[in-house]
């Protein structure tokens, strides 16, 4: 088992778990009690209804990757853990955001949005709701851009990831 990771602070793990009640709580409480820090976490069922897939970005400053992976692997409901090395994964995150937008500032906002590749979901008298799917870093940047306009409400999904196509049998585990 190759547990040698490149020297990045954040590392993405794709964890396949049994689709049973309480499994997410087991994973979350493991991180809490072992003092492993989570940068982001996303869960959803997979194409096989028996399993769910958790994409978790862990902070390696709190614990070595090797320990995190091995402790996760001890959970009986955890079926498989794949490491996605940065550069070997396609990562995306979705952001929904409602931003203050008086009519005279809308063009400006839409310009930013177009450049980032986002969408206008709806427009109100003094607000707009936008969505953006992108690399987490791009989503961060766009969030920063919007902040001066006044963010009313914002929700991000946390990142999800798949191994790159030429890499499917690659460095995962």
């Amino acid at each position: 088992m190759n547990t040698q990771a490149p020297d990045y602070r954040y590392h993405t793990l794709v964890v396949t778990v049994e689709n049973k009640s309480g499994v997410l709580a087991r994973v979350a409480s493991l991180f809490a009690r072992r003092a492993f820090n989570i940068e982001s976490l996303a869960v959803a069922p997979t194409d096989d209804e028996l399993f769910s897939r958790i994409t978790v970005v862990v902070d390696l400053e709190s614990a070595p990757l090797d320990q995190i992976v091995k402790q996760l692997d001890k959970l009986v409901n955890v079926v498989e853990i794949r490491e996605l090395y940065p550069g070997h994964a396609v990562e995306r995150e979705l952001m929904l955001v409602t931003v203050s937008a008086e009519p005279d500032r809308r063009d400006e906002i839409v310009e930013h949005l177009d450049r980032a590749g986002g969408k206008v979901l709806s427009v109100g008298t003094d607000r707009m709701m936008l969505s953006l799917v992108g690399l987490p870093a791009r989503v961060d940047e766009f969030e920063d851009l919007l902040r001066p306009y006044g963010i009313v409400e914002l929700q991000r999904t946390g990142r999800v990831a798949l191994a790159t196509l030429d890499d499917h049998d690659g460095p995962g585990r």
């Binding site: 009640s21 309480g22 709580a25 087991r26 409480s29 493991l30 009690r33 009986v76």
Partner: peptide, 14 residues
Amino acid sequence: TTGITQSITKHNFL
């Protein structure tokens, strides 16, 4: 009970 004992059992079942 399963919540309370989750972190002090190898595994538990409801």
